[in-house]
């Protein structure tokens, strides 16, 4: 029991200053295996900064970050990914000039055991690994329903599928924790509904813990079990969706100063 409930990700009083600006302040967070948690808050609240801190884009000014019990504070991004955390980006960052399959294959590079000499001279071990990677890549694309587009140029896909591919590419790194940064941005309600199903599907299929940033309340309230609210870099509320929806501090943060005075008053 103890083992399963132990947190997969733990942020301990993390603070991030950019010069005089405090983007994230004293932020703590515990994620447990298998959870689907939403991180919400008004624009500029510091949500993406939290992601960048977890994935090593930034090193926190203060505080520690633990993943599966290991202190990963200050690790460079590629090592964080190798440890088992994958992410998507708010503004899609695919390798536009590469094919859909190649986008996924890039993620397998860390697992390559053949040296670059073997790749350069096309020695048998490398060729074997390359074949296996391609098979696995196709298998992954099948599981997420993109196999028919394997050879298409990633940059030429329609928007919704680019989002989907970005998630598939993140899955290819073999993560146990997936960070999704506004996956529904720019989607219509119908697409958002399909994305919700997709997220639920991959969460079961790949046995994931998911932390997602989202503005779309339909999505957040629909699939998250727990929601954390950030405002001006400070954590102001946490709880199940129903409670968060009614929380006066949250309403104040979203609706502005006047309301807040009312609430305080």
């Amino acid at each position: 029991m103890q083992a399963t409930s132990r947190e997969i990700l733990k942020l301990e009083r993390v603070t991030m200053n950019f010069g005089g600006l405090t983007a994230v302040s004293d932020f703590s967070l515990d994620l447990f295996p298998g959870e689907l948690v939403g991180l919400i808050g008004p624009n500029g609240a510091g949500k993406t900064t939290v992601f960048n801190l977890i994935t090593g884009q930034y090193t926190p000014t203060r505080g520690r970050i633990y993943f599966e019990g290991r202190d990963i504070t200050g690790w460079p991004p590629h090592l964080v990914t190798a440890a088992g955390i994958a992410r998507t980006f708010q503004n899609i960052r695919l390798f536009g000039g590469l094919s859909v399959l190649e986008n996924v294959l890039v993620a397998y590079h860390v697992r390559l055991r053949a040296t670059f000499w073997e790749a350069m001279f096309q020695l048998p071990r490398y060729n074997r690994e390359e074949r296996r990677m391609r098979q696995e890549g196709m298998e992954l694309l099948r599981r997420v329903g993109l196999e028919r587009l394997a050879e298409a140029e990633a940059g030429s896909l329609p928007y919704g599928q680019q989002r989907q591919l970005e998630i598939a590419r993140a899955l290819a790194t073999g993560p146990r924790l997936l960070l999704l940064d506004e996956p529904a941005a720019g989607m219509n309600p119908e697409e958002t509904r399909r994305l919700m199903d997709f997220i639920q599907h991959i969460r079961r299929e790949f046995n994931l813990t998911i932390l997602l940033i989202e503005h779309d309340m339909q999505l957040v309230m629909g699939i998250c079990e727990r929601i954390r609210v950030l405002d001006y870099g400070v954590s102001i509320a946490e709880g199940p969706p129903e409670a968060i929806q009614k929380d006066p501090r949250v309403i104040a943060a979203y609706l502005g100063e006047a309301e807040e005075e009312d609430v305080v008053g």
Partner: peptide, 29 residues
């Protein structure tokens, strides 16, 4: 040699860096 390298997993990783360095690092490169 260069063509082999460019078409291998190493070349793919290099092209990924060309396309988007941040995303390449996020893929473990």
């Amino acid at each position: 040699v260069v063509r082999n390298l460019a078409q291998s997993s190493f070349g793919r990783a290099m092209k990924a860096i060309r396309e988007d360095e941040v995303a390449a690092a996020a893929m473990g490169i």
